[in-house]
């Protein structure tokens, strides 16, 4: 038996929307600690890892040790788009061998003594569990900046090139691209905004390095401004995947690992 409720369906929709940028379907792993979703995109460029802890939900109950539900993200997103922002979202699942396995999605809107209700059932599919495990890495470099700023730069670069080059230095980040017709060059410096800390850029780069990334992926990560207006990028070097993270309350959040492009 599984039941979880959320008063902000918009946030869950944003999470599913972010995942569906790269992944068609994935296993939702419900445990007593909360919900975890992880998947590698078909091009093996980005690994998406989402945690929504039990305390992140307004109500959360999972009686099973671990419940693995294979979900088509596109269909789930369609359902979530039907939910009004002022509704209470409820996800539920009952283990019943006799019936088709499905995840129930319900939206309730308070109307005084009564409630308006919309109910959906999402048919589940079997997906082989992932074999890859995210290794524990000791990140030596870190950068924190406004998500909107990363989005703006990635969107601009995407107009010119499929590849963006990030050069992390001790006191600056250079983001650039070049094509046959033009080049673009952005410089981002650490800065503290005393009136609005969320505008600040902080960097702690111990070992400067340069990495090329696929622009489209960085742009899609930066769409997560609804999740967190700040993005934290953790790195080691050009050979190790970079981590882009957007944290939420109660130890929850979305985290991406992205592989760089290497020059032979």
């Amino acid at each position: 038996m599984l039941e979880c409720k959320l008063q902000e369906p918009k946030v869950f929709r944003s999470v599913v929307e972010a995942m569906s940028e790269h992944i068609k379907e994935c296993n939702f792993e419900f445990t007593r600690e909360g919900l975890k979703m992880q998947a590698l995109d078909s091009s093996h460029i980005a690994f998406t890892f989402v945690t929504l802890s039990a305390t992140w939900w307004n109500e959360y109950r999972c009686d099973d040790e671990a419940l693995l539900l294979g979900v088509n993200l596109e269909t789930l997103l369609k359902i979530l788009k039907c939910g009004p922002d002022n509704s209470l979202l409820a996800l539920s699942y009952e283990n019943d061998d006799d019936e088709v396995s499905e995840l129930k999605v319900k939206f309730e809107v308070d109307r005084g003594e009564k409630k308006d209700v919309a109910e959906f059932a999402l048919k589940l599919t079997h997906i082989d569990p992932m074999e890859e495990e995210v290794p524990e890495l000791t990140w030596t470099n870190e950068l924190e900046m406004p998500t909107q700023e990363l989005f703006r730069i990635a969107r601009d670069i995407s107009l010119f090139s499929e590849i963006m080059v990030l050069e992390f230095d001790k006191d600056k980040l250079r983001i650039s691209c070049s094509s046959k017709e033009s080049t673009a060059d952005y410089l981002v410096h650490p800065f503290e905004d005393s009136t609005n800390a969320s505008n600040s850029v902080r960097m702690n780069i111990e070992a400067p390095f340069k990495v090329s990334l696929t622009t489209h992926y960085v742009l899609s990560f930066a769409k997560n401004k609804n999740i967190n207006e700040r993005v934290v990028i953790k790195m080691i070097d050009a050979e190790t995947p970079l981590m882009f993270s957007f944290s939420m309350k109660e130890g929850s959040g979305i985290c991406y690992y992205i592989a760089g492009r290497l020059t032979d």
């Binding site: 093996h44 890859e132 495990e133 995947p241």
Partner: peptide, 14 residues
């Protein structure tokens, strides 16, 4: 053009 690294390979290696 730089070659795209394969994330699956990276995680299998570690």
């Amino acid at each position: 053009t730089p070659i795209q690294n394969d994330l699956a390979e990276f995680y299998c290696m570690v």
